[in-house]
Design a protein around this nucleic acid. Sequence first.
DNA 1: TTAATTTAAACAACCGGTTGCGTAAACTTA
DNA 2: TAAGTTTACGCAACCGGTTGTTTAAATTAA
Lengths: 342, 342
Amino acid sequence: MTEYKDATMLDIARELKVSKSTVSRALKDHPSIGKKTRQAIQDLAKKYNYHPNNIAYSLSKKSTKTIGVIVPMLSHYYFSTVISGIEELAYKSGYKVIICQSAESYEREVIVSQALLSSKVDGLIVSISRETVNSDHFKVYQSKNVPIVFFDRVCADMEVSSVTIDDYQGAFTAVEHLIREGRRKIAHFAGPPLLQITQKRIEGYKDALSAYGIPFDENLLIDCGSGLEQENGSMAAQEMLDRGIKPDAIFAICDPIAIGVMVTLKRNHVNIPDEVAVVGFCDEPIARVVEPQLSSLVQPAFKIGETSIELLLNQINGQDHIPEKRVLTAELQIRDSSSSTI
Amino acid sequence: MTEYKDATMLDIARELKVSKSTVSRALKDHPSIGKKTRQAIQDLAKKYNYHPNNIAYSLSKKSTKTIGVIVPMLSHYYFSTVISGIEELAYKSGYKVIICQSAESYEREVIVSQALLSSKVDGLIVSISRETVNSDHFKVYQSKNVPIVFFDRVCADMEVSSVTIDDYQGAFTAVEHLIREGRRKIAHFAGPPLLQITQKRIEGYKDALSAYGIPFDENLLIDCGSGLEQENGSMAAQEMLDRGIKPDAIFAICDPIAIGVMVTLKRNHVNIPDEVAVVGFCDEPIARVVEPQLSSLVQPAFKIGETSIELLLNQINGQDHIPEKRVLTAELQIRDSSSSTI
DNA sequence: TTAATTTAAACAACCGGTTGCGTAAACTTA
DNA sequence: TAAGTTTACGCAACCGGTTGTTTAAATTAA
């Protein structure tokens, strides 16, 4: 309990009057080491509570057995679930995971991606911040041959592997569902314009409308500003009502926005779903807690994490040389907020 | 874009026909390097897009400038907020943060704590899993003089720094509030028995009752099993109702449990707060989303994170030699679930 | 019994930085 | 101009592992 210094291979070697390399090999059961020598070394290692120094290992092997993950926000259920998926498979494969937040800031994203690069991660999994337009900080990884996998939010101008869900299809499904429920005046609360998901979901929204012969109305495409939080939804909804716009259904880019919308609607005594049906995206836990319970598109977050690390490991192990793009589908979970009782 | 190998100091040294040590010093503006030499070296470093190898740095300096964090679950708003607090101050001080989940598993906790030790973190911040009773895996840190700070959930048998909130006081406050609202038959939905917070909150609950002359009723102390999730609360509440027990107020160990309770009550047509008032603990975002909005004790999560890293850095920098225990207070946020309209 | 082969372990370079110490050249000072 | 200081940089060891190559001893074959 009071050994202030870690035992090293050299310590063991000296005590047993063998060489450092012999210790190294003995500890990994290398066949060229004699049985008694090996045993003696392993015994002493136990006794000294020897633990290999990962730093030294990494330096000599030029591999840290570590993969970096950058997400915008840890405090979103979606992202933390993706991370759980990543960790699961990473640990099984002997990899550690370093998790960083960009806090939705481009500047911070650049800093952490450089830090991870300096820390010599063997690979990187990223969902970019909503501010990010420039991808130079990720291109450095490519130039150094460190594989990257993007999930959910990708850099459009890079040729890399990615795991996304089919935003277009998800949005289309949601809107189609609303139409089939008899809604005609369907508004879409959209996200930050820079994000691909914003655009894809808008497309799905528009196409679903036109597929059912409903003309697109500019006024029903609501911009929620740069945030994806509840307040953004609340404010945008209030603004909409103030402008005298009253749809009979709302498809929101994400659950927090949807909930903000619901709060505002209820505050204005608009009945959900009778007067206005609401559908969100992501199926966060709160979706089952609000009243009425929120219909939402289930993103297979854990699966997205697993798939991301799978693609990454394939690249690290040199199996994939060309980027692979996996697209998973989001399934609609219908709850009370959109199943009309009319 | 196609340099497959990182430029090293040696590369720069060779090209400029100087020594490696000169490059090392020049890059950090060491005064003993001439102005022109320094400039030439720095210019070439830019040109080659040189980035120092952190691994090598760590090996020679015997410090990774990295601190490890182990939390039970990333997907809890509370924990991810604590982490944000930790990161904030850590980055400012030039430290990186490695985040790991124990997934509430003792076994996993041991594994990750050993991995972090092998990775030579300069310090560790932990909130233990609810299964953890043995703390040998943390004692190894002490034997190697790697400082540890516990937050929220601590190992009772270790002499280390910790940051906790005053669970006793929080529970007392909550129950006192309920009593002042005119409630007398107050139930407590308790957490996993092994956790200190479970015990402290039970104490606060009991003492508040007796402070107001209300006898403690064994039947009103409800065990929610080993989980802290919504379902645990739901099931325990249903069981309670089935046993014919009907309190007029419920203080739950945490918000998810409280919400589970609310769901069950509503399903059984019990009005909240008229028939039963409910108070939770943690003030997670969902507290403002359920209906009625849930009263809860606000844990200053971000502040807890900041305080934890502050204590840790003090120890790393050798300012603190004796463990320091900081106790923050939780403030009661009163909402509709407990403000009686009777 | 000696040469050929196998076995067990040592040697030493390497990974990419940091740093104490030594030293030649340039500059002061006497 | 010789001696004393600075200035600017090189040398080499070190951090703690990994690994290709040698070498000495033990074993086998001839």
